[in-house]
């Protein structure tokens, strides 16, 4: 009965990823690679290098929240978001 209720109220979705969600995630990666014609290895390397650079200046999460190549009409944009974990470094940094 608990199972049934849980299912009815859509609480069970967390433990198993739906196939459409998997499709969406696979496509996101494939489209990035197609759009910028970058191999998966090069892509991974670029992510690591960007994280490295940013980490030199602030304390950040060790993976991107978002890392995507998007198309906006004729523009191709690389959109990446990284969570800053510790802002104290930022606050105390001397303003230029």
């Amino acid at each position: 009965m608990r199972e049934l209720l849980r299912w009815l109220f859509g609480l069970s979705g967390k433990n198993r990823q739906s196939s459409s969600e998997i499709a969406r995630q696979r496509l996101r990666l494939v489209l990035i690679q197609d759009r910028i014609e970058l191999s998966p290895e090069k892509m991974e390397q670029m992510k690591q290098e960007i994280l490295e650079v940013v980490s030199r200046y602030m304390v950040v999460e060790d993976d991107f929240i978002e890392f995507e190549v998007r198309r906006l009409e004729e523009l191709i944009m690389l959109v990446s978001n990284i969570e800053v974990k510790d802002v104290s470094a930022l606050m105390s940094a001397p303003a230029r």
Partner: peptide, 22 residues
């Protein structure tokens, strides 16, 4: 709404864009 069809559609969108069909 399938992976292969969407991937190909994206390629085509890019090609059209490049040839001036916005």
């Amino acid at each position: 709404p399938e992976v292969a069809a969407i991937r190909d559609a994206d390629r085509v969108i890019g090609l059209l864009e490049a040839s001036g069909l916005h």
